[in-house]
């Protein structure tokens, strides 16, 4: 019962935050609301007993992303552009409503939360639950799966992060030649 109350409250706050983000034009406030949105999601994950995911969401979603978006905003403007006069919202609105309806229709087939017969619970999960402590001696099952059973996947994830770092370095980092820096001098604020 208490779970339902907490879930409804959190989801209501998520929806309110999302609507507020859409309606605002001050990008600074929007970035702060994104942080709040991430914290609310993290709270949802805690309610669902996914402490590791909640931890990551709070650290990455609310922490690092907010800082990176603020850093990006410092390079651009802190207000949205005014919408052009002939802007009609009807086509985007129709696309969003149809997509949203399809997604809601899709959720009808998703098994209930915590359903024992759900596909996610009936393949390898029982093996992990029974054997992970015997196989690895690690009490945190998430760590055992992440680092040992699925070590290959995690290696891939680390390489993805590494690649992202290299890409940012290539695009933004490094020392630029003086001429390039001078050419860019005036345009930095209006592109």
């Amino acid at each position: 019962m208490i779970d339902v109350v907490i879930n409804v409250t959190l989801l209501a706050f998520l929806a309110i935050t999302a609507v507020a983000i859409v309606r605002m034009t001050n990008l600074f406030a929007i970035i702060m609301l994104y942080g709040i949105f991430s914290f609310l999601s993290a709270a949802m994950f805690v309610v669902m007993d996914a402490a590791d995911v909640a931890f990551t969401e709070a650290a990455v979603g609310a922490g690092i992303s907010t800082v990176l978006m603020l850093a990006t905003m410092a390079l651009t403007k802190d207000h949205e552009e005014k919408r052009p006069a002939g802007h009609r919202p009807w086509l985007p609105l129709a696309v969003v409503i149809v997509t949203g309806a399809a997604l809601v229709y899709g959720t009808m087939d998703i098994p209930a939360f915590g359903d024992v017969d759900a596909p996610a619970q009936s393949h390898v999960a029982p093996y992990y639950i029974e054997k992970s402590i015997v196989d690895t001696g690690v009490p945190n099952m998430v760590t055992a799966v992440l680092a040992s059973y699925r070590g290959f996947d995690t290696l891939g994830e680390v390489v993805v992060i590494f690649t992202a770092g290299i890409a940012v370095l290539l695009l933004l980092g490094g020392r630029r030649r003086k001429t390039a820096a001078e050419n860019r001098g005036g345009e930095g604020n209006d592109t």
Partner: peptide
């Protein structure tokens, strides 16, 4: 930190 420094360094 690389990503953060790259963004902050542009400003």
């Amino acid at each position: 930190l690389i990503i953060f420094f790259a963004f902050a360094g542009r400003g």
